[in-house]
C-alpha cells in the first residue's frame, strides 16, 4: 500500500504523475519490497515522512535488534 496523503505528485524529471509501485529496500543485509509512490517512467521514489518515521522506523528497529 502506497502511503501518500499529499495529493498529486509529479516526477520533475519526466513530468508525469507518480503512482503506487513496488520498490526494493535493504538494511543490515536484509532485503524487502514495499509499495511506495514512484515514477512509472524513471522509477524515482518518494517516501513521505509518515512512512519514514512509521513503518520504516519500526522495521529498522526490529532488524537492529535481530
Amino acid at each position: 500500500m502506497a502511503s501518500n496523503d499529499k495529493g498529486l505528485l509529479i516526477c520533475e524529471r519526466c513530468g508525469i504523475e507518480m503512482k503506487s509501485m513496488k520498490a526494493h529496500f535493504s538494511y543490515l543485509g536484509n532485503e524487502f519490497k514495499h509499495d511506495v509512490m514512484r515514477c512509472p517512467v524513471c522509477g524515482q521514489v518518494y517516501i513521505p515522512e509518515e512512512l519514514a518515521k512509521g513503518r520504516i522506523k519500526t522495521v529498522e528497529m526490529a532488524l537492529e535488534d535481530k
Binding site: F25, G43, V59, E60
Partner: peptide, 11 residues
C-alpha cells in the same frame, strides 16, 4: 527534513 537508515535499492 527527515532521514531513515534503510536504503532504497534502485533496480
Amino acid at each position: 527534513v527527515y532521514s531513515h537508515r534503510m536504503q532504497i535499492e534502485q533496480e
